[in-house]
């Protein structure tokens, strides 16, 4: 088990919240990562694609900066191969159909007091917890 990192959690959360406020204030866009990614394909203009690419590049670079100062990021894969691919498909399909993920519905939608985002966040938290419960405590 990993020790909870409360200070890191709060600092990281404050940065994510500030990033969302900055994006909204500067560009009028919601910092929902699944939506920003999803807008890269489909009937969008080139200028619309450009800001999405720039945001996602910044996202990767930001994680990279911290990685440099903390001697690399830890990534402990929870599953591999077919199951990881299936999980990826579910995450992509689900966030598109449901119109958002942890950032868009969770961080931004809740702040907008959106009933849709509140419902979505509740549902994905519950199904994710049930999934982990089944994998860790029932199947194995």
């Amino acid at each position: 088990m990993l020790e909870p990192n409360i200070a890191g959690g709060i600092v990281g959360g404050l940065l994510i919240g500030s990033a969302s406020v900055l994006l909204l204030a500067a560009s009028g866009q919601i910092a929902g990562i699944s939506g920003i990614l999803g807008g890269l394909y489909g009937k969008w203009t080139d200028t619309d694609r450009l800001w999405r690419l720039i945001f996602l590049t910044g996202l990767i670079a930001g994680a990279g900066l911290i990685s440099i100062f903390s001697h690399g990021l830890t990534v402990t894969l929870q599953t591999q191969g077919f199951q990881l691919i299936l999980a990826g498909i579910l995450v992509g399909f689900g966030t598109r159909l449901g119109g958002g993920c942890t950032s868009g519905h969770g961080i931004c939608g809740l702040a907008r007091r959106s009933k849709r985002s509140f419902t979505a966040t509740l549902i994905f938290m519950v199904t994710a917890m049930v999934t982990v419960y089944l994998i860790r405590h029932v199947i194995t």
Binding site: Q78, L90, R96, C101
Partner: peptide
Amino acid sequence: LITGSALFGIGWGMSGFCPGPAIAGLVT
């Protein structure tokens, strides 16, 4: 909204990845 969020949660629980951390993790 309901079905999509439910499916997303299943994938999230299986992998521990939601879209932001997965894309950020590409840097590794």
